[in-house]
Write a protein that binds this DNA or RNA. Structure first.
Lengths: 235, 235
DNA sequence: GCTTGTGAAACGTTTCACAGCA
DNA sequence: TGCTGTGAAACGTTTCACAAGC
């Protein structure tokens, strides 16, 4: 199916798009998980790790781990394994998170505010440099404790995106406003959108959209649980 | 790879596990998206929809839509398409969201509180019936405006889960506490966990875990954007 | 005409199995 | 011996193409 710039919902999320440049999307996903695992190992003083050890806690086979890493180069030593510290640096380099990414959040409701102050982001190389909302009651307020970023009206978006080289945006507005907000982000020059709104965003190709709608996740969990209990009943 | 009850991180999320009862996980994911799309169509007064129309806005082919639906039965009429209202009911039945699911949230930090008051959940059949936190400063407070559920200490978890038939739990605590909290949920009888903590949860088979760590999503988006620009540069 | 449902082909990903190396 | 990296096989999912139905 064509996904050209004129197409309506290109909805290009990592689970749909099979691969970027020959790298399977699931492999990229796992890379992020390996990174988290490796950081834990490093904290515990581990110097090297085998593909088997790295995969075990995550529930993957050793072959899977090796294939995933081999897409990007030869990082391991036969008989030894992978150097924990080196592999962390390599994966960060692959993901691009060895440098800081500036991010804007649109929507200062509960979710937007929670994301804006989420401590996990800075730890991983993402910095929230702007929070936007058109609600006059919210504009001007500062988010967080201690107060941090000021909530700005949406028309300041282009300025902030341009001046701070922002490439990522988070949409945390109601479904009705989502498309419009996404278009504003696109126009401002953002290259990727994390979408928390319960709506499909129609975006032209150059913008990547990852839908993280929260109900969606619960729905899948619900199906999974029911499938299991049904299976159990069938036995 | 064996994923038996004794294995460490079984980490059984929908993108890893290829299928439940022969249904591909991606198909279930898309089912949730179709549902959202159909609700929009219903609101706009549409009575029937073809697989082509339903797929278009989401970026899927007509064949994909038909195959996904065909896993569960014959809902369409040749020459006509699918009845919007009927299909909504069918998909809800498949996902199990035609009935209300009670959910508990553990962790009353920013994310936990935002989730506890998220309006999208009740609309989709999920009701938050308990919020837990061991921080004495938080226990006893009521979340939301107007004030709703009271924050309870973790030792009330088993009682609430049992009395309200809770099958789903959301983990919104720091990484260090995540495994312990997950075990408490398991012990209380929860069947599925949505994990917002940046840690892999080791859970025995009967519990399904969906990791939704927020940094993970941004990391994948970052890789995607870089892959695109690299590709563009290579041309 | 248009649309569904579905076998069969095409495609992509994961697993296997082993050569090569520390 | 233990481990990586990798072709080849196995597996699963998506796309194609068309018979059957409205």
């Amino acid at each position: 199916m064509a996904r050209d710039a004129s197409a309506a919902g290109s909805h290009s999320d990592p689970k749909d798009q099979p691969a970027w440049d020959g790298i399977p999307a699931p492999a990229v996903r796992r890379l992020c998980l390996y990174l988290r695992e490796l950081e834990g190992l490093l904290a515990r003083g581990r110097l090297t790790v085998s593909s088997k050890d790295l995969g075990r806690t995550l529930g993957y086979t050793d072959a899977q781990v090796r294939k995933d890493l081999a897409y990007f180069g030869h990082f391991g030593q036969p008989g030894i394994g992978y150097g924990v510290e080196e592999l962390i640096a390599r994966i960060r380099g692959i993901l691009g998170t060895d440098k800081i990414w500036n991010v804007v959040v649109v929507g200062a409701g509960n979710i937007g505010q929670a994301l804006s102050t989420y401590r996990g982001f800075p730890k991983r190389g993402f910095r929230i440099v702007g929070v936007f909302d058109n609600n006059p009651a919210k504009v001007g307020q500062r988010i967080g404790d201690p107060p941090g970023v000021e909530i700005l009206p949406l028309d300041h978006l282009p300025e902030v995106v341009a001046s701070q080289d922002v490439r990522l945006g988070i949409v945390a507005v109601p479904a009705e406003a989502a498309q419009q907000v996404a278009e504003a982000l696109l126009a401002a020059g953002v290259k990727g959108i994390l979408n928390f709104a319960p709506a499909s965003l129609a975006m032209p190709e150059p913008v990547a959209v990852v839908p993280v709608e929260l109900s969606l996740q619960l729905e899948q969990l619900a199906f999974q649980i029911r499938a299991r209990s049904t299976r159990a009943r069938a036995r």
